[in-house]
Write a protein that binds this DNA or RNA. Structure first.
Lengths: 154, 154
DNA sequence: GCCATCGATGATATATTGTATCTCTTCCGC
DNA sequence: GCGGAAGAGATACAATATATCATCGATGGC
């Protein structure tokens, strides 16, 4: 599905790529941040900040408050380690934190499963349209709600 | 900006177009719905359900609860009288309720001003990409965050 | 080593957005 | 008018997000 040949990380590889990326930005890779990243990456669908807070609370054995999670998620989104799915108020780990794409999410309204595609030509067109309307620094949010193949079969 | 030549309604014209559209769908055009529509249309930026509840409360002279507003907004969105701006958790009136577009919102992160463009070729490409990935009944959500021309000039 | 400082996290409160449920009213076909 | 269905009100609550202040720990100057 990916149209380009960069590394698609998973598991430990993804985690170390994330750590590397974050530290390169001059940010710290703390235990808490690692725990939030692990939790985020362990979900197979977009997870809300509260879902993550709960998961981290479980693994840490103590209550982690939502605001800490929000702080870290915001940091991750800023550093391209994670993405926010606007139409779901949720977050997903970015599987290739080192390259910058405008990504397109396809979200199943039935099961919540979300797949992610990149189409730089498409997103470039949208950026261009925004620029034509006088918008600067445009950051496209492209999400498609629908029904995924599996749910459709039922 | 609109690439097509349909009627762009405003004021009373918009209101009657909305009423006509809703009644054609077999729904009622009640006083409450009219009041919500008026409030929605009177905002010059996306308004949250609570903003609208407050506005309607003022004009009605009594407290209108949010859930009533949500109900009506959901109905409006379903009938194409209004759109939800996902990345802002807010709603805007649709200025041409009689024709169906996948619309593209450009939202200024500074002032909140939102402009709306239609580009059927672009949205068709996105629908196609979703269909290729096995998604059916895809409803694109295309929003672009950035800075509008006016805020940029400052 | 000691302390000043700064970034990260914790604790807590609160704001904002969205639903559920039940009741009561109003509208419409008859 | 009557009865059923749709609309709206009241209330409670859940889910999402932010603000504020306190604390902790590492780091660097002295």
């Amino acid at each position: 599905m990916a149209r380009h040949d960069h590394q698609l990380h998973e598991g430990e590889s993804l985690k170390s790529a994330a750590r590397e990326r974050l530290t390169k930005q001059g940010e710290q890779w703390t235990g808490m941040r690692a725990a939030v990243f692990d939790a985020l990456a362990s979900f197979d669908k977009p997870a809300s900040a509260y879902d993550i807070a709960e998961a981290v609370s479980k693994t840490e054995g103590r209550r982690i408050a939502a605001n800490s999670v929000y702080r870290i998620l915001d940091l991750f989104v800023g550093a391209n380690l994670a993405r926010r799915v606007e139409s779901a108020n949720a977050y997903v780990a970015n599987q290739h934190p080192e390259c910058l794409h405008d990504c397109i999410f396809l979200i199943c309204d039935t099961c919540g499963q979300t797949v992610h595609i990149d189409d730089d030509a498409l997103s470039a067109s949208i950026r261009r349209a925004a620029a034509n309307a006088g918008f600067s620094a445009p950051r496209p949010v492209i999400e498609v709600r629908g029904t995924c193949g599996e749910c459709e079969d039922d």
